[in-house]
Write a protein that binds this DNA or RNA. Structure first.
Lengths: 342, 342
DNA sequence: TTGTACGCGTTATCAG
DNA sequence: CTGATAACGCGTACAA
């Protein structure tokens, strides 16, 4: 006794009208009399008719599904961007499919293909750390019409729209803030420089120093990951040297947190002796023993914008044009106790 | 110059064989000679053929998509459960579609219907706060074969499998821990009692008190939401009374955080004067000024289990049976400084 | 205003 | 081993 969905054919049989009439009535086609329309809609409801979007999609070529590929879904940043995308797109009747690359380019490639097989109408992605070569993405561009939109972690590929924050500016602002607070020897915890975002944060840091007549010292740039442990290690390294920094601009909140922990252990006072500012404005930063300054990436807005860019693409595409959009959002500095000496 | 996907029909024309042969070759059907198989596969690759899952799904009735409905995706708990589900199901070739109910039963109902229209093979959901009446869910059960699986926030509906943690035990454990630490006047911040989880945490709290010969005082049960502000307000209320508590078991980490903030403001020492333990083990709890005790809900495991229950359903269903599973996971207590007086 | 018939891309059944 | 053809459920040009 398996329950089977009613189809327009079932309705047409019951009412002794053609399937075309039923289809048109349900789609509110003006060429159908109000009487039959009402009748069809009523019996459809009675028979618990549900439109099979699959059949519709096969015919129209539109699934009303989009795919999102992120490294991991359960981080504050990515889940917030996804929320932003979902809320924007659900207004237009789209569903979002989530995939995790686990920072692995092969997994990313696999998901790209399965999403394409699933006939999604578009793909949003933040590339994995291990994505250096971008042939697999380029190939999709060459062989399909499915629009791809990068958010946050982008690669420069002609024809792909991007939504990012101005990481360069973010790095610049954070560093300048530390300078304005009177710190003189500012070091930087750099992230994976294979990713543009970290490269840009570093460049912003450097330029802010230069613009304020400070020297950029290579030994002040420590390559950390985005983990607490990496931050702890970085402090150990820095404090084993003759010249000690009085401020840290970390490209990661987690590394910054590790730094705070290790500094506390060494009884080094924040922000009196050392200032700390992170990046991402993770929720925990404001609840820390000493609330930590950070750069907010406005992930919800980023998601909304990405959604809008996609909708624009769809519209453009139907009118033949196809424009590449580059949306750059401004990061917001959140100054808290960890970097306020004045 | 729009790019169109190659179909098996295109391949069949090119090779002068029938579409049936092509389809069989691509599906590795044993009744096809190795020679033609190789040829078909080779030209398919050359023509950049991609299988159209839509057509396949229309034929087979399986989309290999499942839907997940949660209140909001960008919370640590829900995004982690989703991660768990995704990782389990992707092993079996399923994609996950995410929807947010925004704690609104009407939105929840709408998503339920659009997911059904999209022909998903199953639906995972955590009901919204405003879901009291469950007719909309019952109706789906009556009219479709799509399995529904509740996780965390469930309703008791026959025929629906659930994956939850033992919130009763969680409440019991948290309370008992406070008792064992020597606290005598333990109050409880209760969540929305329309949700079973909060009801169960409350019941566990009560039973633990009773089992240890304490009186359950109704005035010690404060109905807070899950916000920081609610926790602050609760402290204000409690401390305006003649009898003051010496411990708080909060059903929400955020309310517990608010309590900690307000207690600090009033110079009341944690854990010497008052102990605090929360629920959910939010990431911030371990980074607080005073690391806060909490109950971990093992969300990743919950997601994995929910995925497995779904897979079991699919298997059962194909063999005609359909069993209702109830998986209950044990919460893990995380004791930190905020509740350790000894 | 309504009906007929075809196509979307696959898989599966039946012949050969 | 391979081919022709009928489904799957819907929308729509073309007819009436």
């Amino acid at each position: 006794m398996t329950k089977k969905n009613a189809t327009i054919y079932d309705i047409s049989k019951k009412l002794n009208v053609s399937v075309a009439t039923v289809s048109r009535a349900l789609n509110d086609n003006p060429r159908i009399s109000q009487a039959t329309k009402d009748l069809v809609i009523k019996t459809a409801k009675e028979m618990n008719y549900k439109q099979n979007n699959l059949a519709k999609a096969l015919k129209s070529g539109e699934t009303k599904n989009v795919g999102i590929i992120v490294p991991y879904i359960n981080t504050n940043f990515f889940s917030s961007v996804i929320r932003g995308i979902e809320e924007e797109l659900s207004l237009h009747g789209y569903h979002v499919i989530i995939c995790q690359s686990h920072e692995d380019v092969l997994t990313e490639k696999k998901h790209l293909n399965t999403l394409l097989n699933a006939q999604v109408d578009g793909i949003f992605m933040s590339v994995s750390r291990t994505t250096v070569d971008t042939k697999h993405i380029q190939q999709i561009l060459d062989t399909s019409n499915t629009p791809i939109i990068f958010f946050d972690r982008k690669k420069d590929i002609p024809g792909i729209s991007t939504v990012t924050i101005d990481d360069y500016k973010g790095g610049y602002m954070a560093t300048e803030h530390l300078i304005e607070e009177g710190y003189k020897n500012i070091c930087h915890f750099a992230g994976d420089l294979n990713l543009e975002i970290y490269q840009n944060r570093l460049n912003g840091y450097k330029q802010a120093l230069i613009d304020h007549k400070f020297k950029v010292k290579e030994e002040n740039i420590i390559s950390t990951g985005s983990s607490i442990d990496a931050g702890i290690e970085a402090i150990k390294t820095l404090w084993s040297r003759p010249s000690i920094p009085d401020a840290i601009f970390s490209s990661s909140d987690f590394a910054a947190l590790g730094a705070c922990q290790e500094l506390k252990k060494r009884k080094i006072k924040i922000p009196q002796e050392v200032a700390v500012i992170g990046f991402s404005n993770e929720p925990f930063t404001q609840f820390m023993e000493l609330p930590m300054s950070s750069m907010d990436q406005t992930p919800l807005i980023m998601g909304n914008m990405a959604g809008q860019v996609f909708i624009d693409h769809i519209k453009d595409n139907s009118s033949g044009v196809s424009i590449e959009k580059k949306v750059v959002l401004a990061p917001q500095i959140c100054v808290r106790k960890s970097s306020k000496r004045k």
